[in-house]
Design a protein around this nucleic acid. Structure first.
Lengths: 354, 354
DNA sequence: CTGAAAGCGCTAACAG
DNA sequence: CTGTTAGCGCTTTCAG
């Protein structure tokens, strides 16, 4: 049996309310306070959060759903979120669906039962119905503050990198390097806007989209990129560059190319998305779009906490975070290889886009 | 305001105890049960775990402390632990210290206040005092079931790979490939037993340990390996192989070698530890010791849950999990390059070693 | 089979 | 400044 506030009160010869006051920093005579403090440390007493929660109506707990922890991007974002929230006095319950979408609902249910103060819901179900997505509906019905990275959901707060702009920017980089036959590897687990950005870049430069160069599938891993690239090779279509929806996919694609004796970047240029640590380590080092994780975390938390303060009022705010195109080796350096101006900043757009 | 058991009771025209009975699957007349169930779903009522906990004395929550999530090994282990625990009805609170040791104590304190049913405590403080380590002491004093991966702590349950044996096995592999000048990169954040295994292998083969070939430091990342390797090069000592305490370090070391024009494995062989996904992707693919994550998770959970059932009784059990040496490209294939017998199994030792 | 009542450990009025 | 008291939402005796 653990000690309770009663034990402390008895030990210190005061009432339980006095002990409570000491713990909550309310005014107590100095001598009394010290006596209580001594008893607390003598007994190694820890106040029971559970009981406190029943009255305070707040758990100081945030629920986080991410698609996968073995993807470095989500792992790092989770870690930063946890740290930033901790510094603001919140504990994070981190749940990875590992791409099993049916778990999302189960996690949400658990969050509700545990009365989390807010939820950060990051789904890789890029294809959900625009007007209604059941787990999110459940959160809203329960009036729990929530923030997502899915701009498709109307009237739900959202913080996300500008996927369309970033993808367009990346593909334009390839176009500037004289590529015209550019493939895309993506799928429902990768934001659809990245494909849209790819299409937009081609359109802007009068390049006809070749649908056979677009490979989609349910995956998002190294393995997925490897397979899709081999599919692409099997079509016998011509392509000189590939834009991949995320880094693991890009690295898998590069591996498949190399296994087929195709040199990167000399024969085919490859570009990824996320800039996970692995991107700079793999050979050739991956040119990719960097999502600024610390900024993402900061904005997600700001938005969520402001929503908590306004007791769950969701304004449907959308914040777009800028990205950087980080140029490394995997698509060469084009016309000006000695340039060290290797960062192209995407626009920052705050607020809902018109 | 969320609905409570009272609202359901009123809606269904029964008492709150009946609602409680329905929720807990106790005997209730069929008609009544159905009426209650209807009210529950009509109101989308979720029972409050917090209130339940106050009576039940269990939170169905496990606390997990890991050193870092951006290291794939910990990320994957965390993900598997979370999934396995979820399947057993437990929610995981995952806390990454990100190598800030002072956070360990803060997390433990939080776990106690939240009344977790058990703690999985994975510290990378490899050097802690054998007889007492403050965060762990705190757990024990509070009689919370705990399991660690630190075999040094006496009378604390522990599940861990056999680091000494695995390291010895890895280094012997290098010795079999005719290497005699073998360096080691490690440090306090990497289990000391890996260094002991390295020393043991050399000893067993009559090779004098050259202390200048052992590079230690507080790190464990890619960056750390890169720096330590450069330190090693700066000493001008001869070495033809390196055993690294974990994979990120090994991959960093390889990068540093390549940046100095030293070829791997032709000039220097490198071997790592963990077998993270990156190990098979980086070039050259890394030969490394595989820690079986799913098995590790299974055993950690088994041990913890059995301890919970025996209300916190810690027996100081130590389980050693076997590893595999996965041979890829980074140390060549030695005398028999065509062999596809590329797995050397380490012994499995269950129970405390004599 | 069902309801009334006690109480888990804590905080927050409300009196002194 | 401090003690008394009434709950928070639930489970669990104990009577009907």
């Amino acid at each position: 049996m653990r000690y309770t506030i009663k034990d402390v009160a008895r030990q210190a010869g005061v009432s339980i309310s006095t002990v409570s006051r000491v713990m909550n920093g309310k005014s107590v005579k100095k001598a009394t306070r010290e006596r209580v403090l001594t008893s607390i440390s003598d007994l190694d007493f820890h106040p029971d959060q559970t009981a406190r929660t029943m009255i305070m109506k707040e758990t100081k707990t945030i629920g986080l759903v991410v698609p996968q922890l073995s993807n470095e991007f989500w792992a790092m974002l989770s870690e930063v979120l946890q740290e930033d929230l901790w510094n603001k006095g919140y504990t994070l319950i981190l749940c990875s669906t590992n791409h099993q979408l049916d778990k999302e609902e189960a996690f949400i249910r658990m969050f509700i039962e545990r009365k989390v103060d807010g939820i950060i819901f990051i789904s890789d179900s890029g294809n959900f119905n625009q007007s209604c997505y059941s787990p999110v509906e459940k959160i809203r019905n329960n009036k729990i503050p929530v923030v997502t990275m899915s701009p498709e959901l109307p009237s739900i707060d959202c913080v996300v990198c500008d996927n369309i702009y970033s993808a367009t920017n990346a593909v334009e980089h390839l176009i500037r390097l004289a590529h015209r036959n550019i493939a895309y590897i993506g799928g429902p687990a990768i934001p659809l806007d990245r494909e849209m950005g790819y299409r937009k870049a081609l359109l802007m430069h009068g390049i006809v989209v070749n649908e056979t160069l677009i490979r989609r599938g349910p995956g998002q891993t190294f393995q997925f990129g490897y397979e899709k690239l081999n599919e692409l090779l099997a079509t016998n279509k011509t392509f000189s560059a590939i834009f991949c929806g995320n880094d693991p996919t890009a690295i898998g694609a590069i591996q498949a190319l190399m296994d087929s004796g195709i040199r990167v970047p000399y024969d085919v240029a490859v570009i990824g998305f996320d800039d996970i640590p692995m991107a700079s380590i793999s050979k050739p080092a991956l040119t990719t779009v960097r999502q600024p994780i610390r900024l993402l975390s900061k904005e997600l938390i700001n938005m969520l906490l402001s929503s908590i303060e306004n007791n769950g009022e969701s304004l449907g705010r959308k914040i777009m975070i800028p990205t950087e195109l980080v140029i490394r080796e995997s698509c060469g350096y084009g016309l000006n290889p000695r340039s060290n101006n290797n960062l192209f900043s995407a626009n920052t757009i705050f607020g809902h886009r018109g």
